[in-house]
């Protein structure tokens, strides 16, 4: 095989689970919430770098988002990624998973030959786990999801998948799309040496809609089949009663009440 070429699709996500909504505008409060590299995308980057160390490979990271999303590319350069492509354009805004995968797949095709596309299983914001398989769909490639081990051998990969009730080993010829779970590895820390090389900006390419030769009608919110109608915080309604008394009395009246509603 010629030099292995690996593409990793990564996403910048809000850096906390404590996101809140603004009840007036019905939208996410993003202010003050730092963007981070999506955790399982970091595992995907690590998986690519492990393959690079073992077999030799050029690793390109690809992200779509606002210009700030370029931060996650700086971060993966510091881990050892060779090149980065930032897809940013107002026309991309509001893209759902189908359109996002479409844009990413157009960029992958434009970036030239590749052997393996890696993605994190899901992103912690939308939690859809859809983009990986959708990229595979647009490019007519085989997909392997839930990977917890990837072994490369003579143009094939063997992947161990972590499923609900079993582990499954599958073999697939490259090129292919693989989505990885956090069980696959422990991502390395960024290294100072890499940080220095990363800083001069020479690793980064930025593309917009025109570079991808895609008409605006196929992009963004208008082209996306799914639309978010509303976001809200889950309402956990108060429904019950506090049982009074000391331990003895509480226990006794609980048992009585449970008998009363026929659960014991």
């Amino acid at each position: 095989m010629k030099g292995l070429k690996i593409i990793v699709a990564v996403k910048q996500v809000p850096g906390t689970d404590e996101v809140r909504t603004d009840p007036k505008t019905n939208s996410l409060i993003r202010q003050g919430v730092p963007g981070i590299l999506n955790p399982e995308d970091r595992n995907a980057v690590e998986a690519a770098l492990c393959l690079k160390e073992k077999h030799g490979a050029a690793v390109t990271a690809l992200t779509m988002g606002p210009p700030e999303a370029g931060d996650v590319l700086e971060e993966v350069f510091a881990m050892g990624v060779d090149k980065g492509i930032l897809l940013t354009d107002m026309a991309f805004a509001g893209s759902d998973t189908l359109i996002t995968a479409f844009i990413l797949s157009r960029a992958i095709i434009k970036s030239g030959r590749f052997d393996l596309i890696l993605c994190g299983r899901h992103a912690i914001d939308g939690e859809t786990a859809q983009v990986g398989p959708q990229i595979a769909g647009f490019m007519d490639l085989p997909q392997v999801t839930y990977a917890e081990e990837i072994v490369l051998e003579k143009g094939f990969i063997t992947v161990r998948r972590d499923l609900e009730d079993c582990q499954e080993w599958v073999k697939v010829k490259l090129p292919a799309v693989v989505t990885v779970t956090s069980r696959i590895n422990r991502p390395r820390y960024p290294s100072l040496y890499n940080v220095q090389t990363a800083c001069d900006g020479s690793l980064l390419t930025t593309w917009g809609a025109e570079d991808l030769k895609v008409p605006a009608s196929m992009l963004g919110l208008d082209a996306s089949p799914t639309v978010i109608k509303k976001i809200f915080e889950p309402d956990h309604k108060k429904r019950g009663e506090i049982i009074p008394g000391d331990e003895k009395e509480m226990a006794a009246s609980l048992i009585e009440k449970l008998k009363g509603v026929n659960v014991i």
Partner: peptide, 19 residues
């Protein structure tokens, strides 16, 4: 109208694909 949790259940999103 499809409602799903996001952000680890902190937020719910109601989604449609009307067209």
């Amino acid at each position: 109208l499809q409602t799903k949790p996001a952000f680890g259940g902190n937020i719910m999103a109601a989604i449609t694909a009307a067209n």
